[in-house]
Simulated scan of single mutants.
Amino acid sequence: MSRAVDDLGSAWTPRNAAQRIARKGIKSPERRIYPRERTVSSARLRFLRRNSAACRRKPARLGFRDRTGMTMTMIYKIAPGELWREAEARGTFEGALIDVEDGYIHLSGADQVRETAARYFGGVDDLVLVGIDADRLGDALKWEPSRGGALFPHLYAPLSLADIAFARPLLLGAHGFHLFPADIP
């Protein structure tokens, strides 16, 4: 019995069929196969984000010691300076325009904040780096898959200034990249 072989010379088996289907341009021996497209309503997508098991799982603790010596998980928000000053006057941060549109406040872990600054705030001046104690946010904080499957923290409530560990200016260096404080890993 001969096995079907694709144009790359590797055997076509049920085990690797799903991987081949996901890649465009790979043909089965009989016909071209495309991935099945599925649409999900935005309300259903929000429900799935809030209630999936992955959302309730926290990544490894990347933390700092607070004044009492307890380790706390730090997460970060990069906010425009003007918007942050308005939030300080009100006592809560509702989020930037993209946060309001998505229904949650986009946050970053310690290992993600530099990439977030480079990707979404490259060359932008007058930013504030806000450090937040994740343990104080409770059930409103969900860790959800995003860029490349990495878990990102999303806050489904306004951010109270009582949960803020610090707010520092995020300066723009001469080379166009942001200068992070030395105590952020």
Results as ranks from 00 to 15, higher is better:
E82T: 14
A96W: 01
P169Q: 04
G109L: 08
W84G: 00
G69I: 03
I26W: 09
M70G: 10
D102G: 07
E37K: 06
K58F: 10
G9K: 07
G25F: 06
A18S: 11
R46D: 04
H154N: 08
S160E: 11
I98L: 09
T73P: 00
D126R: 14
P14G: 04
D111V: 13
N51W: 02
L179Q: 06
G81P: 03
F64H: 06
G123T: 05
A17S: 07
M70V: 09
R65W: 03
E30H: 13
R65E: 08
A157M: 02
F152V: 13
L83S: 11
S108I: 06
S2I: 10
I164M: 08
K24D: 11
R114T: 05
S108R: 04
H178S: 03
A157D: 09
L97A: 15
M1C: 05
D6L: 04
D125A: 13
V100K: 10
M72C: 08
R49V: 04
A157V: 01
T13H: 11
I21G: 03
P14K: 07
M72I: 15
L129P: 03
D125E: 15
R32E: 10
W84H: 00
L155K: 02
D139A: 14
D139E: 12
K142T: 08
A4F: 07
I33A: 09
A53D: 00
G95I: 02
G69H: 01
A17L: 14
Q19E: 13
H106V: 10
A54W: 10
Y76E: 00
Q19W: 13
K24P: 08
L172H: 03
S52I: 09
R168D: 01
E115Y: 12
Y104N: 01
